[in-house]
Design a protein around this nucleic acid. Structure first.
Lengths: 106, 106
DNA sequence: TCGTTAGTTCGTGAATTATCGAACAATAGA
DNA sequence: TCTATTGTTCGATAATTCACGAACTAACGA
């Protein structure tokens, strides 16, 4: 894929974001990203086939929960913490707290 | 139905709750409940066939987002504000804010 | 007891989502 | 240029979810 669709801050939709976050695997990804900061996909060590992971990364990216940056053969993924916090104040913090994330790593 | 399944506070699961909240119709219901307080189903005036609404009420109830109380032929539905706030502090407030709810009505 | 009201359940079809192997594309390095 | 690495896309299947008419259940009031 050449261009990655990523919605702007204004385009973030609550139902879409909540849906993206309503899956255990995707919550695992979010937790890792919050704890480790920006990572390339493989570094997250989520236990699942890569095509399955790719699907979940896509759902997260297209909902606007994560940002993906291309660098070489890798895709660096990060939480759109500021955008989410601006658009839905308190939402992400509440979720990270439940996931047991002590300190958000930018 | 004789007994309504409603999870206890401890049983609330983040992914399940987020999924229940990731639908526009159900967000409408939540908004109405937050603004008007406990209501019987019909009073919410959500535009959809009753069997469809019944489905959405069930999803909300079984996820633990709402509580249902039987009284005569009516089912009074309310937001489990305290339980949600205890289990996932800040989550519901963030969502109600995005829905444009000024003042939560208990 | 007979309507009426309120809401569930059933059954079915449509739509969406999830899973994952296999083939593919792009880049980096030897 | 060959190869290894990273991750996407395709395609097929399974599972879940949604939608909604029709039939049903329970309680209330006349």
């Amino acid at each position: 894929m050449r261009t990655l669709y990523q919605p702007s801050r204004d385009e973030l939709n609550l139902a879409t974001v909540l849906h993206a976050l309503s899956d255990e695997i995707r919550l695992d990804i979010i937790k890792s990203l919050a704890e480790k900061g920006e990572q390339y996909c493989n570094a997250l060590e989520i236990q699942a086939p890569k095509s399955t992971l790719s699907h979940h990364y896509k759902v997260l990216r297209e909902s606007g929960v994560t940002h993906t940056r291309l660098e070489g053969t890798q895709r660096f993924v990060s939480l759109r913490y500021d955008d989410l916090n601006a658009r839905f104040p308190g939402l992400l913090s509440a979720i990270l707290k439940e996931l047991g994330v002590k300190q958000y790593q930018s």
